[in-house]
Design a protein around this nucleic acid. Structure first.
Lengths: 217, 217
DNA sequence: GAATGTGAAGGTTTTCACAGCA
DNA sequence: TGCTGTGAAAACCTTCACATTC
């Protein structure tokens, strides 16, 4: 294990689920948990849980299961959420405003410390203790504030320009909420959050009586 | 084609991407588009595009490509977004408030027509022309309003109770924003929107210098 | 000539099933 | 005995490559 084998995206996403389940188990004072129980809680299979974890090491004890607290720590390390990340958010509209107060982000170590917008009425205003900066100063302020991750929540029409600026500021990780594909260099990680997509999947399933399998997150 | 073969989740998600790209192409007055161009715009491969579409029919013309307008209409039909869906939203907090005004939903035919909350200060208040109802009347009002899809944006701790009520009201499609897995009967479709997951993927990629492949949405 | 539609090949992910260990 | 860790098998998904059609 721990070879240079490529880990699949699905495995990483499931690690997030295991982490979440382990947080609940820890709060409920469980010491150990079996792959079977972990699978049940996230609607997966026990074999899947064991295989996923096996890519990163041997965390369990045969006959007993996995130590809750320790496995949670291990997964946090693997996912890189055993630290805090300095995050900036661009676009204080609809979605953006909601994300500033979204507790789940800070709980996982993603601290939003900078806000940007292009609207004069918003610039200078205070959201959860953070003053909104003018987007014209984006590049300079991103580096000054040592930002590592940028969340983009601007209209689709301007998203590419904003992302170009972000890339030029040297940022290597972007989370995009605009419903548009964005070009970035190979060394920049970008992920897309497309909230209509799951609704469309539901709609497809209803119209086609599509059989259900797993419930992917 | 059109046999009872199971269509993969990835294919459906990519249909959403094609639909989005076709909307742009239509606005820009393109008459036809090749699988190559469609692939370029959504960072996929031409073969993938053709294979995906082939599951549902033969929409293209050899030597020419696909008719933009017609293909868009066809995909809308497949996804079930060639109609409107009556949607209710439960939980007018942080995320919930943002979703009420989220244009992308209405653009795809998902019309939010009912709002619910348990907070007395919110009940009776008006959001985008919709008065917030008391969650105690959830079941009754969901059927009275002929709701077909419910979006859940309540805290994780109460999400299962809410979902049980929704299921009892006969709803067959649920979009869940609470970061928790929820149990529903086999005939109810539920999808999860987990916004931390993509941030965690970014964090994983950065910590592990993970090579990038496709950009999934 | 250009680009679709599609079997077949290739690659990846999941599941199986069991050896091995507490 | 119970449950992990893991090769091997099965299932699934993507890419190739080319016959086909406009």
């Amino acid at each position: 294990m721990l070879g240079k084998k490529r880990i699949s995206e699905s495995t990483i996403h499931r690690l997030s689920l295991y982490y979440r389940a382990l947080s609940v188990l820890e709060k409920d004072n469980y010491d150990t948990v079996s792959s079977k129980e972990l699978a049940r809680r996230e609607k997966l299979t026990p074999a899947q849980v064991r295989k996923d974890l096996s890519f990163f090491g041997s965390f369990g004890t045969r006959g007993l299961g996995y130590p809750v607290k320790e496995l949670k720590t291990q997964i946090a390390g693997i996912l890189g959420i055993d630290r805090t990340w300095r995050v900036a958010l661009v676009g204080i509209g609809n979605i953006g405003s909601a994300l500033v107060s979204y507790k789940e982000f800070s709980r996982q170590g993603f601290q939003i410390v900078k806000l940007f917008d292009n609207d004069q009425r918003k610039i200078g205003s205070n959201h959860k203790g953070i003053v909104v900066s003018d987007i014209r100063n984006l590049q300079q302020e991103l580096s000054d504030a040592k930002i590592e991750v940028v969340i983009v929540a601007v209209p689709a029409t301007v998203a590419q320009y904003i992302v170009d600026d972000i890339v030029n500021a040297g940022i290597k990780a972007i989370l995009n909420f605009a419903p548009v594909n964005l070009k970035v260099p190979d060394d920049v990680y970008i992920r897309h959050e497309n909230m209509s997509m799951e609704l469309e999947y539901l709609s497809f399933a209803m119209v086609n009586n599509h059989a259900q399998k797993r419930v992917r997150a």
